[in-house]
Design a protein around this nucleic acid. Sequence first.
DNA 1: GTCTATATGCAGATAGAC
DNA 2: GTCTATCTGCATATAGAC
Lengths: 224, 224
Amino acid sequence: MVRAGHGEDRSTRERVTRAAVGLFAERGFNGTGIRDIASAAGLTTSTLYHYMTNKDDLLVEVMLGTITPLRDAALKIISEIDDPSVCLATLVEHHVWLHASDTLGTLVSDTELRALPAERRAQMVRLRDEYERSWHVVIHRGVETGVFDTLNPDLTARSLVQMATGVSHWFSAGGELSLTRLCHAYSDLALGLVRASRPGGVPIRRDDLTLPAPTHYLPDRPAT
Amino acid sequence: MVRAGHGEDRSTRERVTRAAVGLFAERGFNGTGIRDIASAAGLTTSTLYHYMTNKDDLLVEVMLGTITPLRDAALKIISEIDDPSVCLATLVEHHVWLHASDTLGTLVSDTELRALPAERRAQMVRLRDEYERSWHVVIHRGVETGVFDTLNPDLTARSLVQMATGVSHWFSAGGELSLTRLCHAYSDLALGLVRASRPGGVPIRRDDLTLPAPTHYLPDRPAT
DNA sequence: GTCTATATGCAGATAGAC
DNA sequence: GTCTATCTGCATATAGAC
């Protein structure tokens, strides 16, 4: 998306991005110096500037890389899946999968918006709001059809996003919990949160549902 | 807590703290300069240093001011309230009340840990972990007594804290939602999340419970 | 594409007069 | 308690040789 047309070293560019996102996650954008990024990528600062235009663009690139796949998938999900419980669970599992498989990128995207200059920040906020709108849509559908039962649908939607986003603060790939089970646990929590139930009043559990694989709505590959 | 014994101007010191927390919340700790704080408080940088020792201490002060009352109240709550549903709801409402009535301070406390030098950060993390332990205790109690029903109690506790913390990202005092109704809504969400139910299997709603006022466990005064 | 050297400005913090 | 003036060092970013 940002590459130039001629023969640049693509793997070096990726090393720069990875070094940057790691440092941004650890020390924050404003706590990370150009020199830190350069040395983490094994370059001098001058060489670093051959692979990027400036520090801000580096941050924007990281954010677009996480927010865009979230927004695009969410729009697909709410347009393809009618059943509110299935739709919500799918939204949750896609969100959790992406956050757990890219904890650094999502953490930076979620916490460094304020480091951007006003115009860029507004652009990112717009994308994020578009994404969150899908959550509101699902909740309202569920409430209107009587499948969900919650006092304040908008507050509920916000709470769900906030909850599912927390994964990136603590999940580590090597741990005891597999990605699949993690997604499973979170979607079950979400169904309880909205008090999803069948007409008789029986609560709906994640196990009662058949969902697309959490990877089904990913952009291309499962992001290692 | 940090005041010196002799005749310092206490209101100026408070103006400094308020200016600092506002700027930290808006631009982040590392995005805020000493000069910014000074001019926001109506002082020169030299005068500013008469009221503080350094920038780090200012941040620590803000964090202690939010984390300590959370931790202290939580210990009281889990030791005084046996019923898991009532206990959890009380924990939630106290947390939400504090976060909504001091959105700036709690936001800074939650997002700027990484800006502190290692030793101080470790101290703050210890306090925060002590606080979160109370949430784990309540969840485990509820699961053991069969009142709660959740797949992964620790993940559930983390999710609850994360969810309730989100208030400080968006709540504004002038809005349509009163503090009391906000607390009410969140504790009802929490009870759904853990699938709290009576022996017969009937879900427990916040309205079914009698709780202490959300202000009951505050340190002194309701923080304006 | 990669380097050495450097421009320019702001960061946190202090000296010392009043 | 408050000021003017200033120290020291690091920040982002660039110039220009190889």
